[in-house]
Amino acid sequence: MKIWSISNQKGGVGKTTSVVSLGGLLAAQGHRVLLVDLDPHGSLTSYFGQDPDGLDRSLYHLFFEQRWRNVDYIRDTLKPTSLDNVAMLPATTSLATLERQVSGQDGMGLVLARSLAQLWDDYDYALLDTPPILGVLLVNALAACQQLVIPTQTEHLALKGLERMVHTLKMVMKSQKRELPYTIVPTLFDRRTSASLTSLKEMRRTYQGSLWDEAIPVDTRLRDASHQGIFPHQLDAETRGVRAYRHLLSHLHKGES
């Protein structure tokens, strides 16, 4: 299994859209994909028609009573999506209380990594949708993943979030004593606005080498797909947003080899 975390400490930058778009395209390539919702808001969970307030089981429950050891429990927690070869580990709003509940317990940053290890042969890829907050859930994602994708909205304030994310990443790498490759992905790019153009230029100047050299454009078809609870490529395989994510996927695959 290959594990990619889609993370940024700023909200509204396109994390969930990136997880769904990349996950759908990986599935279209024939891969078995697991999408993991680590965000207490449960955007990914809601995307596929599940209620984060109403589910009996979620990622939250794996943190207690060592359920991360129980592969049957984990499998029973998964939910289907609009594609047969894509499953989802949902979030519930109870995840918001996790920080308080596991505070002071050693090793709580490794629960997701251990849970995914139980499913190692079930899936080819796991994509992690993380909350925009530095806490136990984001640390779990960074500890579990082999590659990090940082979607960053092309606007000035998003650059500060990117700076914090890279700083956090460096500290986690130091704590884990390992290198974690990361790719910064400019998102919500609108070439008609000077804010988009200026911030993209700033990203290229500051993060040369880690920045994907294209950008995900604003595309209302991506939003339409979320309303219907289907993967964007199922709605329109050639819309410019899907085409851009397809290019990004090729770029990420190159990074694996």
């Binding site: 050693d106 940053g109 136990v136 500290m171 986690v172």
Partner: peptide, 17 residues
């Protein structure tokens, strides 16, 4: 950063270790 490093170390150190 010291505070954050202590936080990360605690989360990423297993009881077994």
């Amino acid at each position: 950063s010291d505070i954050l490093m202590g936080y990360f170390d605690s989360l990423l150190t297993t009881v077994d270790e």
